[in-house]
Design a binder for these strands. Structure first.
Lengths: 198, 198
DNA sequence: TCGTATAGATCGAATGATCGTTCTAATCAT
DNA sequence: ATGATTAGAACGATCATTCGATCTATACGA
């Protein structure tokens, strides 16, 4: 997830991610990051200019990772429905297999702690743009009702976020079956003619 | 929102809510709460045992308020679809008219800062239970597909949360029209026969 | 009615811990 | 030997919390 960083930076970023998700930001002190990562505080400041900088670097790295994770499975030659399925399945897989990064983004994408510039960079590398394009295609092909792609993506992403939250809290088992039913319901929610055409 | 508290407690809770939403928890110090609320730190500790206690009291008060806000418009005599509409419209109205309380709950309902006991009390006074009952009825009447009511409620609530987030960030204007389209899509997502029967 | 006793409410300075950050000295690679 | 890298002690600021003093208001005895 942090391939483009050196060993020290990677240790700091990984440790920070774990601590923030497990203990919240306020309980994640620099001294704790130093102790857990095995990098002294002085050295942390050699590689990062501040605590804010660490968080923002973390944010950008995870968004990039997530964006690649979701888009790498997409193939423009596939049908819209196939792309729709692949894309959302990747998002769900991301939430299941990389829960800390997923929760971090979910938690900080609206936070003032993240610089606007980080969010801007994030949008370019993230998966929202490609996802909206799929919805745009579906509308153009008469498959979806004419709503704002951005709105539909946000709605469906919100559904997934809350399904994953329930899953992580053991309120709901997110089996392949449940996943399939969820995706089907997303499609039906905005399809012009009801039915998952398969 | 804090009618059942005395003047001092109310000032502290209101101030804390505003500060936490505007500046995040870590930037919300006791001294700042004291200054902004006009209550001295010593006196705050006369009414609250700790900072955690304030947050937890805030959590319980807001969940209670939200629960009453949503359920007060429900009428068991109405059709399931009418109840479905009224309930979700109330949730959206809540998010629009009481955004700070709404965001606070959204932010802290999965946080370790909130005691499990607070969450338990919250569930009893919240609107999730009644909402799930509406879905259960819809299933029993053959209107909805047979999915877990909890799952469906979480999905639709997640959609609303993200619509409201977009709305609050001016990425999307949440007009009455858009609201109606969203509710319609929720219904269609899980309805057995497609169509908003009206 | 008046003076005093009592209990709670309120205050803000003081406390010790911890915060993010800096600095200096030691270590390493070349 | 020199410049980059690392370590951890030290710094001032700020944190949540405590504490003794003061204020307020009601109750009581005469």
């Amino acid at each position: 997830m942090f391939e483009r960083y050196n060993k020290v930076q990677r240790a700091v970023l990984e440790t920070t991610l774990h601590l923030i998700i497990d203990k919240e930001l306020q309980a994640t002190s620099m001294s704790l990051i130093a102790k857990e990562s095995g990098v002294s505080t002085g050295n942390i400041y050699h590689y990062f200019s501040s605590k804010e900088d660490i968080i923002n670097e973390l944010y950008k790295a995870i968004v990039l990772f997530n964006g690649e994770f979701v888009t790498k499975n997409l193939n423009a030659a596939d049908s819209v429905q196939e792309q729709f399925r692949r894309a959302w399945r990747s998002v769900i897989e991301l939430g299941k297999n990389h829960p800390k990064g997923f929760r971090f983004i979910e938690q900080y994408s609206f936070s003032p702690y993240i610089y606007e510039q980080s969010k801007l960079e994030a949008y370019k590398g993230g998966w929202c743009g490609p996802m909206e394009k799929i919805y745009r295609q579906a509308i153009d092909q008469g498959l979806f009702v004419e709503l704002e792609p951005h709105m539909m993506v946000q709605m469906h992403y919100g559904s997934i976020v809350y399904l994953l939250k329930s899953h992580q809290q053991n309120m709901l088992e997110l089996t392949a079956d449940v996943e399939e039913q969820a995706l089907r319901s997303f499609w039906n929610a905005v399809s012009k003619e009801k039915g998952w055409n398969e």
